[in-house]
Amino acid sequence: MSAVTNPATVAECLRMGAGFSQGDRNWIVEQFAPLDARLATFHADATELELSVKNREAKGQKVTLECWVAGRQKIVATSTEEDLNAALHDARDDLRRRLNDAKTRQEPRNNKHLRDNSPPTPAASTNLDELSGAGATTEER
């Protein structure tokens, strides 16, 4: 597997949506720093994140974090926590889980429980040949 030449980071890919200002950006990038390790496996130019909030700091607040990676389905993580900081962390952690799940589903070669590519043993193939009569001529059968 080749290394990503321009890895995605939250700082590079995050767009502020409804309910957030550019003044909130630096604080949010710090809160989302744990996502950088997961995003680093994708190219920055093929990855987008958008964060938005409805009813900020009010009852019924909803934080939405959307992630687009080229060649994959859009991933949406949401939180209805009343505290904004808790909601951001909840959405961040949910996105990280969903990215891990999507990566595992798309690339089972990295998960030994999902693959079974062991070649047949020579003894097993010999036994199958004997049972099926392979190698014997029509007259011998």
Rank of each mutant, 00 (worst) to 15 (best):
M1E: 08
V4T: 10
V4M: 06
N6M: 08
V10W: 01
V10E: 02
E12Q: 11
R15E: 12
M16D: 03
A18G: 06
G19W: 05
S21E: 11
G23Q: 14
R25C: 05
N26K: 15
W27S: 12
I28Y: 03
I28Q: 05
E30S: 15
Q31R: 12
Q31C: 09
D36T: 05
A37F: 08
L39K: 05
L39M: 06
A40Y: 10
H43Q: 14
A46G: 02
T47I: 08
T47N: 05
E48A: 12
E48L: 14
L49F: 00
L51T: 04
L51N: 07
S52D: 04
S52R: 13
K54S: 09
K54I: 11
R56Q: 10
A58N: 09
L65I: 05
E66G: 05
E66W: 04
C67A: 12
C67P: 04
V69R: 09
A70P: 03
K74T: 10
I75C: 02
T78F: 05
T80C: 02
L84F: 01
N85C: 02
D90M: 10
D90T: 10
D90Q: 07
R92L: 01
L95G: 01
L95C: 08
R96H: 10
R97P: 01
A102M: 09
E107H: 11
N111D: 15
N111W: 10
K112A: 07
R115A: 12
R115L: 11
N117R: 12
N117G: 11
P119V: 12
P120W: 01
T121I: 04
T121C: 05
P122M: 04
A123T: 09
S125M: 07
E130Q: 14
T137M: 14
E139D: 09
E140K: 09
R141K: 15
